[in-house]
């Protein structure tokens, strides 16, 4: 009996979404994640009702900042004691905790009311791709990334580079600036 009951259960159930933050702008991602966390994508949405979904974000370590923001964006903190004010650049905050940048971005994009703490609890941030089984087991759908993930030059094989159409060859005595290998590469090697 009561097919309407299960229909309602289906309408009110909280869906779990997966978002891959790899090479994504944290601030613009946060706006999109907030839409799902608040439930703004649902027809039954109302700003005073708590109808949001859960979002699991992976690869928060690899978020991408535009321009010089890693150096220039300041994250301020105040302990409210004398001399308690401090500020850290984005890259330092990111080094301290790889999920902090995205957390703060979502926190400031979320509505500034008493629903914000509950909304933030439905955001599950993981720096890498390894998510506990009991969390990833809930996920049923994926949120589309907002930016196209660029393919780094390192990932092209020598043959692909060779086959890439060229208009001219550099003269043999031309000096080309060579990029230094990243620290990660060094660790691996």
């Amino acid at each position: 009996m009561a097919h309407n009951r299960v229909i309602q259960w289906g309408a009110m159930a909280r869906t779990w979404w997966l978002y891959d933050a790899k090479f994504q702008c944290p601030y613009r991602s946060a706006e999109k994640l907030c839409m799902y966390l608040e439930g703004r994508h649902k027809p039954l949405y109302h700003p005073l009702s708590d109808v949001g979904d859960h979002v699991v974000v992976i690869n928060t370590r690899y978020v991408a900042m535009a321009e010089d923001l890693w150096r220039k964006q300041q994250y301020k903190h105040d302990t409210r004691y004398a001399g308690g004010k401090s500020s850290a650049t984005a890259w330092r905050l990111h080094e301290a905790d790889y999920t902090k940048i995205l957390y703060k971005a979502v926190y400031s994009a979320a509505p500034k009311n008493l629903l914000r703490p509950t909304i933030m609890r439905r955001l599950h941030l993981y720096p890498e791709e390894d998510v506990p089984d009991d969390i990833i087991g809930n996920v049923s759908d994926v949120i589309r990334q907002i930016q196209v993930v660029p393919k780094p030059l390192d990932s092209y094989s020598a043959q692909e580079i060779e086959e890439f159409p060229k208009l001219f060859d550099w003269p043999e005595d031309h000096v080309i600036y060579k990029r230094k290998a990243t620290t990660e590469k060094k660790e691996e090697s």
Binding site: A13, R14, N138, S140
Partner: peptide, 8 residues
């Protein structure tokens, strides 16, 4: 067809 929040 699909399921969600199965561990909750």
């Amino acid at each position: 067809l699909w399921s969600s929040a199965s561990n909750t």
